[in-house]
Design a protein around this nucleic acid. Sequence first.
RNA 1: GGCGCCAUAGCCAAGUGGUAAGGCAAGGGUCUGCAAAACCCUCAUUCCCCGGUUCGAAUCCGGGUGGCGCCUCCA
Length: 489
Amino acid sequence: MSAPEIRVFNTMQQAKVPLAPLTPGKVGIYVCGPTVYSFVHLGNARTFTSFDVIVRYLRARGFAVKYVRNYTDVDDKIIKAAAETGEEPIALAARFVREFEADATKLRLLQPDVSPKVSETIPEIIALIVKLIANGVAYQSGGDVYFEVRKFPGYLKLSKKKLDDLLEGGGERELKGEEKRNPADFALWKAARPGEPSWDSPWGKGRPGWHIECSAMSSKYLGETFDLHGGGLDLIFPHHENELAQSEGASGKTLCNCWMHGGFLDLEGAKMSKSLGNVVRLRDALEKVDAEGLRYFFLTTHYRQQLAFSDKALHDAEGRMEYFYETLKKVDERLDAKEFIAGPLHGEPQRFLNDFHAAMSDDFNFAGALSAVSGVFAELNLLMDKPPVKDKVLVGRTLVALREVVRQMSKALGLFERKPEDWLLARRDRQVKAKGLDVAKVEAAIAARNAARAAKNFPEADRLRAELKATGVEIMDTPRGTEWKVASE
RNA sequence: GGCGCCAUAGCCAAGUGGUAAGGCAAGGGUCUGCAAAACCCUCAUUCCCCGGUUCGAAUCCGGGUGGCGCCUCCA
């Protein structure tokens, strides 16, 4: 397989650029992780899944990826949430880190190589602020420290805004603050108020502002300049813009070579967001839909594109996963205990992988890659059901090759990595529970029907089939006997 | 008010200068005692509208219309 060059859309240039790692063969990526004051919602999950697949793909292409995704565990929202529950802010944050990790495991998200927390990066944050003050781009004001945006010439180069527009704007940005030299200046360090978590600093007790933690954590684990920086579209301004200003204002070097931003998940025509309150928790969604079905749904659109959430879309995605796993189940049963020696293949199994790489190399075109996935599964089924060639050894050998192609795609997408029977059974169990079916009764009816069939009493057999169907159970007569599943509507 | 993204079949969705991927749904067929699943066939002379550039545009440019987003916490 000739590996196509990987091109990535860089928000800074608003164009696709070739991936050119600082160190050949290695990629450092920083993804802005959750602020842990509540459960993550599906919009968050989409972004994390996108970067999960991007990291998986880069690894599949042989890059040694260092993947850093932080937890922001010191923040206004956390303090507010803690005040409401009566917990200590740090304890509440720790609790939601655990909840996040439980959700992430279900979604089969890769564990980042490093998951730093703000609360464990305070010395580095203070050192960074000290440097910014020394460089003349930050100033102390009482117990606070602010970044002075007018002193950093590159300010707003990422978001393409103008400082004047920012100040006039139709927004509701807080422009108050006599303590600031410029209303657009933002806090690097906030003086402690009673009851808030705080740390000693050269400016008295206090805590970091919102953006500085990412600057500190990324340079700590990836260096002053690294390859990829990711997050949701809504982080471009102010978060990434400010992060960039802080990092570059301190180091004088480019923070990262490529900024990647994922598109939103929409719910009923509007961005799913905590401020609008139109969120579906990842946790709640996973009660209703299979985790891989959800992952597949996220991959049906390019990562930078908006994606509309709906129960139907999720349901369809899960149905598609069923097709994939049913196919793999058949393939694996057939290949079991058989060996095929090397030799010619039918068709060109590799062509699907080539198409897959072509799509993924082009700014991680998930939807395009899924087309190649469909191709390989259709070919697998064709060879098993209606092989266009007679040579059984040739067919078997080709199935082995195609199965290997699927394995390669699996690794990059985080899809169909489970044992097909396990996935299929788990899905059925969930559906059985949702419908309140009695498995023993279903199996008794199937046994009765098979007795009727054996006696060639087809009217009775059909009656039992119809009866089951009415309760939502679909039965299939296979070479292995009669199997059943919950009908999807 | 400033800035940006998007508009492709009934639905979802790739494609961004060379003559419309893929999926769902639908119709027909093969298979089956009947089914289910799977497979095969059919399903956009056309890419929101109007102009322009070009031998050639869904793709580039200009102007509309419609949707979304950022400018304030947000993935």
